[in-house]
Amino acid sequence: MTEVSMVVNGRKVSGNVEGRTLLSAFLRENLGLTGTHVGCDTSQCGACVVHVDGAAVKSCTMFALDAEGADVATIEGQAAPDGTLNVIQQAFQDYHGLQCGFCTPGMVMSAAALLKENPKPSEAEIRDYLEGNICRCTGYHNIVRAIMAASGQDVPAVAAE
């Protein structure tokens, strides 16, 4: 076991891990931050997306030891300390951007990365950016609407209405 230290949601953390310990496992099992979901564990589904030094990554496809010294942001750090949802989370609620909710942490973290790069994405750009985030409820229309709303744009009638 090797000690690894990083900053997660602004808090310094450390723990002992094996070489093979994935960042997703470190977050969930060592830190108890189970908001980061492991859907497929094969880097397809994107439920485990977190930010490492500001970049969205699939935490099931990165070793915890490679995050030594990194600044990691997870879904647990998105709301304000008093529980007030951030603008993306609130938009997911307002526009019913989730059904079962399993993919939602990854969707929200990918959306946050997208809006940082591209504050006013088009619908096509949102769909393209979410290529690596799978919603098995197939609730994509409302996820796209929520991200349009979170970016302060008019929400088009894209949903299957």
Binding site: G46, V49, S110, E131
Partner: peptide, 9 residues
Amino acid sequence: IGDPAVRNR
């Protein structure tokens, strides 16, 4: 290549 998260790694 891949998707945005894959391209970041």
